[in-house]
Design a protein around this nucleic acid. Structure first.
Lengths: 222, 222
DNA sequence: ACAAAAGTGTTATGTTTACACCCATGA
DNA sequence: TCATGGGTGTAAACATAACACTTTTGT
């Protein structure tokens, strides 16, 4: 029998993990990706996807890796905060860095991992009981994403490209949690260059709509 | 000889530390508290105060404890970000949570700790060479504190209470890095209730000035 | 008397919000 | 032809920014 590799320190070292709050939008409702825990503690409860920091990656890279593993998507992640109550995980001390991401939920290919019996989208307005302190993490992320949405075009990440302004507006309204005026919205988007017109139309149920694409200069902004 | 206590894990656990960027203002110039390292690595270089997370405290509590130990002051701390490049500390892997605090630098009683040969204030505009990635941490904190100062009355924390509006304005200008209009400033401060008039005057070099105090309702705002 | 800092209002500009009708298309 | 969603402009309210003179007091 192999002796397990052990790591020894002179002082206690908490484990470091990331939890990732993946926001998606469905029919104008904001949802988050949750995983049903297959093991104790909180077996059978819903929890945020997440995982432990690997030796060769930054914490942000860890969050991006978790996102990729859980959804098959690469997307920008944003730090929400640190969750470090000593007893937040009953097994051992785990300090978690919470990140949020906005993705097109229909593009996500959700993988139910080894320790996850199920995974699925849940409306933020109708969350189940959650494991650990994940309810608090989601609440903090909900506030953070609202702030971010005021300043950066993250709503464009929630919808497939290219998109109509109506689609973008629905996403933005879901993030902000309040209705927006259609005409003012168009002005804002074009003035801030959050989206630029593509020379194309999309045929909808009624009149066809002009489509827009995310501005390339928005890729790196904050 | 006593066997040292050892902590053993099945997976590698980075150490977790906080670094704290303590801002102060002197003659209208923004400064930060630095400590001269007394030990390798970076012996003799200037570094941010900081320390390792203890088992019974949250990371924010750790930052507040470090602040208290280094300055004798209790003050609000704000998360700046995580610094987690695997090789940022040559000894072992250390993930650092950077916090910032604004204090009255003349009230600080700086303690040169066991591993710190010296400690002192340095103007942000004239920083020495810094240990580890602390230059990047200060740069990030500089940006963060500017954002915060736009939204919250943190400038009041940089000056002794009670204060004149001229003093507060100098602090705010140092945080924002741009000059402000005296009349507009007075209006903003009173409208936002960042400070309320105390029924008192302070005799200065010339005409005496009315003094203000931080509004109690600002204690918990964000 | 003069130098230095305190105090005080108004105007212009820009930003944000509110609001209503016509158009194109598919059913 | 009608129901549905797409597209468009203007005016009011509000917030922000610019600007100059008088007062007090110590030297």
């Amino acid at each position: 029998m192999l002796t397990p590799i052990q790591y020894v320190y002179a002082y206690p070292h908490p484990a470091i993990a990331t939890d990732i709050v993946v926001f998606g939008i469905d029919e104008g409702k904001l949802g988050v990706l949750l995983i049903k825990r297959g093991e104790e503690p909180f077996k059978g409860a819903w929890a945020l996807p997440g995982g432990f920091l690997q030796p060769d990656e930054t914490i942000e890279a860890c969050a991006r890796r978790e996102l990729l593993e859980e959804t098959g998507l690469s997307a920008e992640v944003r730090l929400v905060g640190l969750f470090s109550e000593p007893m937040r995980d009953p097994r051992e001390r785990v300090v978690s860095a919470a990140y949020l991401a906005c993705v097109d939920y229909r593009a996500a290919r959700i993988r139910a991992g080894s320790d996850a019996a199920h995974a699925g989208w849940h409306l933020v307005a109708e969350l189940p009981e959650l494991a650990f302190d994940h309810a608090a993490i989601i609440a903090a992320s909900r506030n953070r994403v609202r702030e971010l949405a005021e300043a950066a075009p993250i709503a464009t990440r929630l919808i497939p490209q290219p998109f109509t302004l109506a689609e973008l507006q629905a996403a933005q309204e879901a993030l902000l949690g309040r209705p927006l005026d259609k005409r003012n919205f168009r002005r804002d988007i074009t003035a801030r260059q959050w989206a630029i017109p593509a020379n194309a139309q999309r045929r909808g149920k009624t009149r066809s709509a002009g489509v827009f694409a995310t501005c390339s200069t928005n890729e790196n902004d904050d």
